[in-house]
Amino acid sequence: MARFTKDQVRHLGSLVRIALSDDEADRLKNDLNVISQSITHVQDVATADVPPTANPVPLEAPLRPDVPAKTLDRDEILAQAPKSQDGQFVAPRILGGK
């Protein structure tokens, strides 16, 4: 079963945008190995004939009429933004290495 390596943990970290420290990657590797061992036997009973359940209470998707509703106040939302300019949110540059 899954044995996590430190590189693998680092890769997962970069995939979900977490700048894991070296110590953290090491510690997470060990924790995840403990957890992953304990969940391997799920596959024993999850045989091909069992359908998956995504939502426990069976429902059909409700469909909403196409009618506009009140929108958020821009000043109120931008007041919560880490950085804003000219009514917009500011993102650090998107491309580029060092």
Binding site: P68, A69, T71, L72
Partner: peptide
Amino acid sequence: NTKTKLFCPAPYSFGGEPNTELTPVSL
């Protein structure tokens, strides 16, 4: 070209004033 967005009732118009056509869902 629906009047509102796919998952929330915020209106949308091309060239609208930035960040004024938002609900908690679309933000």
